[in-house]
């Protein structure tokens, strides 16, 4: 059985069980003082809102240049994709693969994955609880790695700073991309994984 059915609330922060007092408007954890909720309030609506904002910013993040390389008066703008292609042309396939996975596959997968997770929790379709849980854990774990390109830009801007000889300037694509990463991470955090199990038929279907 679930803790919620036994009249117990689990603290989000320290995982302590607290007896539910329905007559109290706000309840706090006896151990750490954290705010108690049976489920995170408006988890689905908030996650959708964050996800949609991230999806909108995803477009400029991929179209606008993330940085411009100025060398001897010539400027060359790089988008996320052209950066990967350039690495492939240099023959650095393993690094190109890492950047491709971190900056293109992961953000796309996260947007689609969270949307699928929300849809399947709301419509009780089309994934089993086990698949949803694996998806949720993967998204939660992988999210931070998309920040890779932002850190690369920070390092390149600092180190390639030779005045008119050669310099690198960040572009607005980078701002949009950083926002996408932060918003999708927030979306994964607002999503309450217990909702995944709430609408499965039996709570003992773990076999």
């Amino acid at each position: 059985m679930r803790a919620i059915d036994a009249g117990l609330l689990i603290c989000h922060e320290c995982h302590q069980l607290n007896p539910h007092k329905p007559d109290e408007e706000k309840q706090f954890c006896v151990r750490c003082g954290g705010h108690l909720h049976a489920r995170r309030p408006n988890s689905l609506a908030r996650t959708w809102a964050l996800l949609i904002s991230a999806a909108l910013l995803y477009i400029p993040a991929n179209l606008l240049p993330i940085m411009t390389v100025n060398s001897l008066g010539k400027g060359q703008s790089d988008t996320i994709m052209s950066g990967v292609i350039e690495l492939v042309n240099y023959g650095m396939l393993p690094i190109a693969a890492v950047v491709f996975i971190a900056s293109i596959l992961v953000p796309t997968f996260k947007l689609v994955g969270i949307a699928l997770l929300l849809y399947s929790v709301q419509r009780h379709q089309p994934m089993s609880a086990r698949q949803r849980v694996l998806m949720y854990r993967f998204i939660e774990w992988i999210g931070r790695w998309s920040m890779l390109d932002i850190f690369v830009i920070a390092i390149l801007v600092a180190v390639v700073n030779f005045g008119s000889l050669a310099s690198i300037v960040p572009g607005y694509g980078a701002t949009a991309f950083a926002s996408v990463v932060v918003l999708t991470m927030l979306a994964a955090l607002t999503f309450d994984p217990r909702l995944i199990w709430d609408n499965t038929k039996s709570d003992d279907d773990h076999e």
Binding site: R2, L8, I10, H15, L17, P193, R194, I196, W197, D203
Partner: peptide, 11 residues
């Protein structure tokens, strides 16, 4: 003497 799973609320 009980604990609950933080991720799925199983007691």
């Amino acid at each position: 003497r009980l604990i609950a799973c933080h991720e799925c609320d199983l007691l």
